[in-house]
Amino acid sequence: MKRWLAGALLLCWMGWAAAVELLISTGEYAPWSGEKLQGDGFVNRVVREAFAREGIAVRFDYLPWARALESLRNGSVQASSFWFDDPVKAKEFLYSAPISEHREVLFHRKDRAVPNWQKLSDLNSLRFGSTRGYSYTVEFRQLARQGLLAVEEADDDRVNLLKLLAGRIDLFPLDEFTGWQLLASDAFPRGAHDLITTETKPFSVQYGHLLMRRSPANAQLMARFNAGLAKLRADGTLERFRLDLYRGSGMGQ
């Protein structure tokens, strides 16, 4: 009887998942995620296809990143895409298998001398920009909290890059691909990218994940997502999406 009941409940849950779209909070971080990008960007394209392989439809709700996380926390959405590794978040949320890899670097003006550095505290004479809601590294957050790094927060990456160009901040850590694409966009004056360079030493290497609230039902749902993601890797779809990203075909309008 118990075995029959468990099977019936599982079938009911699977039928619900197939019939109802999962609402996933997300934000703008081109070319990885974006409402105006084809497929919603590389990461959200992967998220949609991985769930589709498991018979689950999804819909994305675009919000500022801090609100995207809060909507997951308060149950307004079933999942959130996408977030970097963070031990604090990992205590509260379920993390998927890695979806994407990101090399974050320090952007700065070419005419701003940056001293040789081995650790972030070596740069305590400079002003950093940060974007509200982002994870960053444990070291960066600790140094900022202790007042050992001067960090100014802004609402989005565009504002931070404009502040960098204007000399209001000295350094801005950002995904290398995202930063250069943004600087070359219509959001900036022509030639803005010629005024900017990056540090060779990476700020961090991060991995993007889908997040869900902790519960037995979500643990099963996350397992299905990871299974779908594994199928994309195994049949070459994930690599094809990655090639699309780097060739610039099918990822932007």
Rank of each mutant, 00 (worst) to 15 (best):
L9T: 10
L10Q: 14
W16D: 06
A17I: 02
L23E: 12
T26H: 01
G27L: 01
A30M: 06
A30P: 10
A30Q: 06
W32C: 01
Q38M: 10
F42V: 03
V47F: 00
E49K: 08
F51K: 02
F60R: 00
D61L: 15
L63K: 10
A66M: 10
A66Q: 11
L69R: 02
S71N: 14
R73Q: 09
G75L: 06
S76V: 08
A79R: 00
D86Q: 10
D86K: 04
V88E: 14
L94Q: 05
S96E: 04
P98I: 03
P98F: 01
E101H: 15
R103D: 14
E104Q: 11
E104L: 13
R109F: 14
K110Q: 13
K110M: 08
D111G: 09
A113L: 14
V114I: 15
S121R: 15
S130T: 08
G133M: 03
T137N: 06
E139F: 03
L149Y: 05
E153Q: 09
D157V: 11
D157N: 13
V159Q: 08
K163G: 02
L164M: 14
A166T: 07
F172H: 05
F172V: 04
P173G: 03
L174I: 12
D175N: 15
T178D: 11
T178L: 11
G179W: 04
S185A: 11
D186C: 07
A192R: 03
H193W: 11
E199P: 07
T200S: 14
T200P: 08
F203G: 02
S204T: 13
V205C: 09
Q206C: 07
Y207M: 05
Y207H: 12
L211P: 00
L211C: 04
M212S: 06
L221K: 04
K231C: 07
T237V: 08
R240I: 10
L243S: 13
L243H: 15
R247G: 12
G250M: 07
